[in-house]
């Protein structure tokens, strides 16, 4: 089945089976293997991507549902020279990752949330609720939390400059 969608700013038409999940499409057809697959039933959040501004589980969507839609994956975060997104840099600095398997999902979850509400990280309860969306099984959540708080400040300052 033909489907036209935009991935990380590039619009293309693909021929996919209806049962192709968005996660498998990104990994197998687009070769964007930064999107990880853990549980494949919506619990772990490793496959989280941004669809039209909102964080979604790419294992729980079919590619054919994305006709005309825009998707962003973790590969879109760094700039063209490889400069890290403030959130990526903060994850590295604040020990927000260890094995890294869950990291792309956390990054996309948090980027969508901060773009929607730059004040989010100032509310510990809301941030805790957001971060409980995804599973991390080695680093622990405190490093991730510190990274988000640090990056939120930088992202806000950057927005105010421009």
């Amino acid at each position: 089945m033909r489907v036209t969608l935009t991935v990380n700013g590039e619009a293309r038409t693909w021929d996919v089976e209806p049962r192709r999940t968005l996660a498998d499409f990104l990994r197998e057809d687009c070769a964007l293997t930064g999107t990880h697959l853990g549980c494949e039933h919506g619990v772990c959040g490793a496959c989280t991507v941004i669809l039209g501004g909102a964080a979604v589980r790419s294992c729980l969507m079919f590619t054919v549902q994305c006709e005309g839609k825009a998707i962003r994956t973790v590969e879109s975060l760094a700039d063209s020279e490889g400069g890290l997104h403030p959130l990526q840099a903060a994850f590295a600095r604040e020990h927000g990752l260890q094995c890294g398997f869950c990291t792309p999902g956390f990054l996309m979850l948090v980027v969508a949330a901060l773009e929607d509400d730059p004040e989010l990280a100032e509310d510990g309860g809301r941030l805790g609720e957001l971060l409980s969306s995804n599973l991390c099984r080695c680093t622990g959540y405190e490093g991730i939390r510190r990274a988000v708080v640090a990056a939120a400040g930088e992202m806000k300052a950057r927005t105010e400059e421009t």
């Binding site: 209806p18 294992c59 729980l60 549902q65």
Partner: peptide, 26 residues
């Protein structure tokens, strides 16, 4: 019927649900 799909697609991934046709109402 497929609306949000947050339960149905998980069931389909497990193959506990094997619909012959998906009617996407989105």
């Amino acid at each position: 019927v497929l609306a949000g799909g947050q339960s149905l697609v998980a069931e389909m991934n497990y193959r506990r649900a094997r619909p012959a046709r998906i009617v996407d109402i989105n």
